[in-house]
Nucleic acid binder design. Sequence first.
DNA 1: AGGTGATGACTAACCATGTTAGTTGACCGG
DNA 2: CCGGTCAACTAACATGGTTAGTCATCACCT
Lengths: 191, 191
Amino acid sequence: MGRKLGLTLEHVVEAATEIADRDGLSAISLASVASKLGVRSPSLYNHVDGLAGLRRQLAFRAGGLLAAEMADSVDGLTGTAALRALAAQYRSFAHRHPGLYATFLPAPTPDDDPELTAALLEPVGVVGSVLTEMDIDPLTVVPLIRALRAAVHGFVDLELGRSFGLPDDIDESFTTTIDLVIDAIASKSNA
Amino acid sequence: MGRKLGLTLEHVVEAATEIADRDGLSAISLASVASKLGVRSPSLYNHVDGLAGLRRQLAFRAGGLLAAEMADSVDGLTGTAALRALAAQYRSFAHRHPGLYATFLPAPTPDDDPELTAALLEPVGVVGSVLTEMDIDPLTVVPLIRALRAAVHGFVDLELGRSFGLPDDIDESFTTTIDLVIDAIASKSNA
DNA sequence: AGGTGATGACTAACCATGTTAGTTGACCGG
DNA sequence: CCGGTCAACTAACATGGTTAGTCATCACCT
């Protein structure tokens, strides 16, 4: 049998994305992706460098998609309103794409894979540009951006991991959490 | 060959802990654990219910250890000092036991495994008792404890995942992050 | 039109891992 | 001393990743 289907890298990554978002990142295997595409596992090597390569492609897609969504969400906004929009969009992305979201951690080291490292830090850059517009003391901007990132990521990660035991409203808790951090950031702004 | 070594559940879980803390949670396999113990993989079934059972035992150990350390760390302290001690101990645990720490997520659903769910929520209980002593409005205590948990977990998770790109001092960023949340909590305390 | 080469799928084979079944030798209580 | 239990074992099988080698199809070039 020769060339039967018009399989492309896009198709492979798309299929893997669907599996990851539906059944979790660990459900991705060459076997499951190949099966979804109606193809045998070795055929995937024509498009992707093994399982590791597939995961890498998935991470690229995740970084690019999230960065694009965040850039869109902040359009026309500045200051705390922009930060709130970014946090909400970030959380929404994680809800809609839990599998892609999981590819962010652990991050590759800059030595191992500088290209992928840069792609995964793209979303952070969007937040950074909003913060510099707010005229924060340069000495404290890095800890503050880390605090915001930690709070948002931590909340989403716990939420996705079903780690909040109590039935109390989770949306409200998210608002409380990010407002707490954003207010603290605003109090150090000179804009 | 019959009964040769005095292998116990403790030995198995201990070996798995060492592997997980050194090489990551995903490095745990029955093969790697058995090899470390000088035993064949099927022998482990005499002590543990397969790989899933081993991971479950590891999660129990993680929950118990962290809860004990946190209870110790808060001894004699109250209020914001207690919260700061808890956060520091939590982070220290994650640094010393990254493999055990990773077992906390994703959490099992209460329906699937109520026993393990309870064990993993034990550390949260320690924080809860400190907060109730601080006399916080019961309506806002749940969002606040979630904010604190999200910030601390998020920070540690990003840190362990090498996701902080910049070389800026990480200890200082941690202090900034948790002080930010703890100060907000303190401002709502009536104690 | 027909030959040629690249493409992209395939089968076969190998290795590692998890798991089950059945076996065997050592210890322990009667 | 004898019999049962326990805890290790070997054998066998399934699944998944990977490599090597095969072969049909398509595009292009003469």
